[in-house]
Write a protein that binds this DNA or RNA. Structure first.
Lengths: 302, 302
DNA sequence: CGAGCCGATATCTCCGTGCGTATGGAGACA
DNA sequence: TGTCTCCATACGCACGGAGATATCGGCTCG
């Protein structure tokens, strides 16, 4: 890439003069006096090394050289103007691209509303959403391959990342329809002590996994995890077959499966948090816009 | 067209920095010290209104705004560089476009050699040739719709145009094979006094027409023009049918028609001139190149 | 032949920019 | 904690470019 030789203001003057073919009018359009325009053109011609206009009395016309340069100059100027406008639009957060990682369990709850609201407010922004479990989201945020994470039970303190709770929800017991505990309206945790458990693997989201184990520990038992599955959808399907029971965030009630019953936990003080995560250092206005869209509604989902 | 906001040198620095992502190395590539580079970028960011790079210790990266602006800046810079090179090529006469008007009768004689020589010396020049009679050529030259004219018997003095004789050639009598005069090797003009004539219309080329009439007047008669035709080809065809005879520049011998005979004029001192014409004020180097290509060869065509 | 139009030239001012050197400050690393 | 790297900041200088006004010179036209 060479050092630029032609100043843009001179090219601008050149283009205007090529349109007017009259120094006086062109100068007026440029908002300057006529002599400076003559100078501009002269300097430009010196740099190009050839005359760009023929000046015969009463007739200003492009030379072949000028004719060659004109479309180039015109295009460069308008490209730069357009590009600048586009860049500013990105800077203002009116347009651009936002990459969002999200936990699969949120695809049925917070995510649709969030996308809808955001798209409504910023229709020109391209949203790239990719399903990932919690741990990969944190990695992706640090590696800058996503800009926003939607995840459960994040570690609180982080040097690079910030979190904000989007919602908290209680846990529910997931039971097969035929299970004896499905008869009541609620379930005490201790009642699940002897039941085999189906859970998401710890690697997928250590935070949530550890929360669930802590819950059980609080009720005096260590769950017997007989199976894991990477999707809540699959967990429910396994529960339906009678393989075991599960503990899950209440929002998975949205998964409607015939043979599966969800029962609130008694007493139910424990809640799981869904958070939005982003890089503290991120100055992308779209991140701020998205954070503004997920107003910190602590409202619970029963 | 708006007044340009972004100085090219800053955009250049921006592009280089975006490639290096390192102020020190980018400055070295630009051949300047590091602080000036920081300033350039800062000023550019001020004008854009948004940061173009994130500077975290040990890591320089493009912001979304910078990412948006980069391809635009790159393209504008390279377009301008290319366009400038192209314009200079045109200015040097190495490339460009040259519009040539020519009399149809020359399509068989001087034109092919001229085009061949010129194309050989300037292969990158686009030649646009258009067949026109003499008078329209002069008009087209004045209106700048052609740059070069190839014509017969131009007026000598002209305020705007210059001429140079390319070749001179004698006149020949055009006779049908069956014509009594076709029996001899030469023809005296006076022998044609009673014959009906076929000629080009005067409007097509007054110079040549008047020359022919002057020739006849010199031989003591006024030709009886019974028919005109805008192409020599057609004139020959009409002569072949026995409609009449004609007087023409010798080069139309190239038109080989079975039933047509060409006979030299006795004594044959009178010659017709073929000239190249151009605008005196034309500074297009291609015009000079073409004039140099048609070296003033006064050699006659018999 | 004088008036008017149009572009070039001369001269001056001012400001932005580009570049330098010197220095500061924040992380990273040993 | 000291050092090194890397970028930002401060300050100064010089140049070019953009603008203005005044004037000149050529051409056209009434």
């Amino acid at each position: 890439m060479e050092r630029p030789e032609l100043p843009l203001p001179q090219l601008h003057a050149f283009v205007v003069l090529a349109e007017e073919l009259h120094f006086g009018r062109a100068a007026a359009r440029l908002g300057i006096a006529q002599p400076p325009l003559s100078q501009q053109i002269r300097r430009l011609e010196d740099k190009v090394g050839h005359a760009l206009f023929t000046r015969e009395p009463g007739r200003v016309a492009l030379t072949p050289v000028g004719h060659e340069l004109l479309p180039v100059a015109r295009r460069a100027l308008s490209d730069l103007a357009d590009g600048l406008a586009a860049a500013r639009a990105v800077g203002s957060g009116r347009t651009g691209r936002l990459r969002i990682g999200f936990a699969a369990s949120l695809a049925l709850t917070v995510l649709p509303g969030l996308l809808r609201d955001f798209r409504q407010r910023f229709p020109e922004v391209r949203l790239e959403i990719r399903e990932m479990t919690t741990a990969p989201q944190l990695t992706a945020l640090r590696e800058r391959t996503v800009d926003i994470g939607l995840l459960r039970e994040p570690e609180e303190a982080d040097r690079e990342l910030d979190f904000r709770t989007v919602l908290t929800e209680p846990f529910v017991a997931v039971l097969s329809h035929g299970h004896p505990l499905a008869a009541g309206r609620t379930v005490r945790l201790a009642d699940l002590a002897e039941a085999p458990f189906v859970l998401l693997p710890r690697e997928a989201g250590p935070g949530l996994y550890d929360r669930i184990l802590a819950l059980c520990a609080g009720a005096g038992f260590v769950p017997d995890v007989v199976q894991d599955a990477v999707e809540w959808q699959t967990v429910c399907a396994l529960v339906e077959t009678g393989l075991g029971v599960s503990l899950a965030p209440a929002s998975i009630r949205r998964i409607r499966l015939k043979g599966v019953a969800f029962r609130a936990i008694e007493p139910g003080a424990e809640r799981t948090r869904v958070a939005v995560a982003w890089r503290k250092s991120d100055r992308n206005p779209l991140v701020a816009h998205l954070l503004a869209t997920v107003s910190p509604q602590s409202q619970a989902t029963r």
